[in-house]
Design a protein around this nucleic acid. Structure first.
Length: 492
RNA sequence: GGGCCGUUAGCUCAGUUGGCAGAGCACCUGACUUUUAAUCAGGGUGUCACAGGUUCGAGACCUGUACGGCCUACCA
């Protein structure tokens, strides 16, 4: 709503008008800078080493501070690479530049050229000889010393957060490097990066409520994908032996410090390996990425030092739940008996939950919070994992593991089920159970089942929650701190 | 969904027992030729989130609403 313009914005608009009246374009099309501020600092050092005269350089960036000292003004200029001090001698500037300077504010984006020197106190400085306005700022920046602390504002106006808080900028630079390092790791191992549909006629590969949308020309409803899994497996069938996708997926569920409705997932599939091989790959990948991005394979998270160096602890799920909850789920082969046992622990148990979900609750309540150091939990009940292959000697368990660190689940992987008949049975059983409980009906991806019938090589598949991995490596306790524009409720 | 906490100037925050709306930074005016959280002198720029209620009087107390945070619940 266009309410009353505040005082500062009004003053700045007046300055903007004055600048225009003098025939200066306040939003020109470009500026040729010769150096970034970082390069300029390096150049000054080189000049000093060789005792050279300062050459003229041109820089561009945002004015971050102004310290007028009578006939001299010192400004801080910031660009993407860093910042440098500017020095303006008012009596050495042209009248035109001087007039322009009077109408500049902190926050304006300018181009400057002049010679580099060092002040008495040793500060690298550019003496401004010419001054060009590149963009007039009409809004005051957040305060320079305390920065921007209002969490709501930091997320809704992330650009201000990035300007005001160096740590925020650093977090997202690290995020970018983590993702690049993951790509490097997988590419070097011969994985092919692919892209599969976000819009899907049936949302499979995970059990989560999807977002729905509609395509007008086709007059057809679509789901936003909740996982890329079923399409990536089609590519294994098509003959790509190693594929991965790094992309956004969407789940229409709760929002919390560990959940955002859209988040970034890595999924990889490798033919002719099983979940043990994937386990080795995960610990190598995470520790190598960490080493490459942070220069260490240890990170601090929630006040604890987490050592990501392989090998990670391996624990059978059954033993882990025994250890932390005192329940051996193998002794309770159905939901009712397991629920009764959980009630003895004074857990509030949802009577709707099936055995798989009860076990999941045991994991998240008792086990997950204890897994600060990286740990693989292995061998999950088949009810929890309809896409995973059962163990050769036990058809109630599947070859699946989840990786935990910092008390969070960061990866999920299994030996992929490639028996088309069994896969169909598992889907049908799952669908029946869901219908009994009157949950949203899930359509079976018939096209995927058809694809499986052509033969999928035995394979190990992996899913990694990139946002949570970034949280772990940057020490952030909220997923909103590692997503540039997290989902928030619209302000009225 | 439930519980607790928060919302005061552009930003960061005070505001006592209910009694004239405050500070620092930013901004405006002036001084200052090596400052760097520059300094000095002067200036307060506000729908106290919103809507009701109690009261002679509400930023404060009560009720409701919105948004946010934390916890919890939900969640392959």
């Amino acid at each position: 709503m266009a309410s009353r313009l505040d005082r500062i914005a009004q003053q700045r608009r007046q300055k903007l008008d004055r600048i225009r009246r003098r025939g200066i374009e306040p939003y020109p099309y470009g500026y040729h800078r010769s150096h970034t501020t970082e390069q300029a600092l390096a150049l000054l050092e080189t000049q000093e080493e060789r005792s050279q005269e300062g050459a003229t350089v041109s820089l561009a960036g945002r004015i971050m501070a102004n310290r007028p000292m009578g006939k001299i003004s010192f400004l801080d200029l910031r660009d993407g690479s860093g910042k440098i001090q500017l020095c303006l001698y008012k009596n050495r500037l042209s009248e035109e530049s001087l007039e322009l300077f009077q109408d500049l504010d902190i926050g304006d984006i300018i181009g400057v050229s002049g010679k580099l020197f060092r002040t008495k106190s040793g500060e690298p400085t550019l003496e401004v000889e010419s001054l060009t306005l590149l963009a007039k700022s009409l809004q005051p920046l957040p305060e320079k010393w305390h920065g921007l602390a209002d969490v709501d504002k930091r997320y809704r106006q992330r650009y201000l957060d990035l300007i005001a808080n160096a740590e925020t900028k650093e977090t997202f630079q690290v995020r970018s490097r983590i993702i690049a390092a993951i790509r490097d790791f997988l590419n070097q191992r011969g994985f092919l990066e692919v892209e599969t549909p976000v819009l899907q006629p049936s949302a499979g590969g995970a059990l989560a409520r999807p977002f729905t949308t509609h395509h007008h020309a086709l007059d057809q409803d679509f789901y936003l994908r909740i996982a890329p899994e079923l399409h990536l497996k089609r590519l294994l069938i098509g003959g790509f032996d190693r594929v991965y996708e790094l992309g956004r997926i969407f789940r229409n569920e709760g929002v919390s410090t560990k959940h955002n409705p859209e988040f970034t997932m890595l999924e990889s599939y490798e033919a002719y390996v099983d979940y043990n091989d994937v386990m080795s790959m995960v610990e190598e990948m995470v520790s190598e990425v960490c080493q490459q991005v942070l220069g260490s394979d240890k990170v601090e998270f929630g006040g604890e030092i987490i050592n990501l160096k392989p090998p990670w602890q391996r624990l059978e799920l059954r033993q882990a739940i025994k250890k932390y909850a005192g329940i051996d789920f193998e002794k309770y082969p159905d939901a009712d008996s397991l629920r009764a046992e959980m009630l003895k622990l004074k857990m509030e148990v949802d009577p709707q939950k099936d055995r798989g979900r009860l076990i999941d609750e045991l994991i998240s309540t008792f086990v997950e919070p204890n897994l600060m150091q990286p740990t693989f939990l292995a061998d999950y009940p088949v009810e929890m994992s309809p896409l995973a292959k059962t163990k050769p000697d036990n058809d109630r368990l599947v070859e699946r593991f989840e990786a935990f660190a910092g008390g969070m689940e960061i990866a999920n992987a299994f030996t992929e089920l490639n028996d088309p008949v069994e896969q169909r049975e598992r889907f049908v059983r799952q669908q029946k159970e869901r219908q009994v409980k009157d949950e949203a009906e899930e359509t079976i991806d018939q096209d995927f089942l058809l694809a499986l019938e052509y033969g999928m090589p035995p394979a190990g598949g992996l899913g990694v929650g990139i946002d949570r991995l970034v949280m772990l490596l940057t020490g952030q306790q909220s997923i909103r701190e590692v997503i540039l524009f997290p989902q928030l409720k619209e302000k009225p």
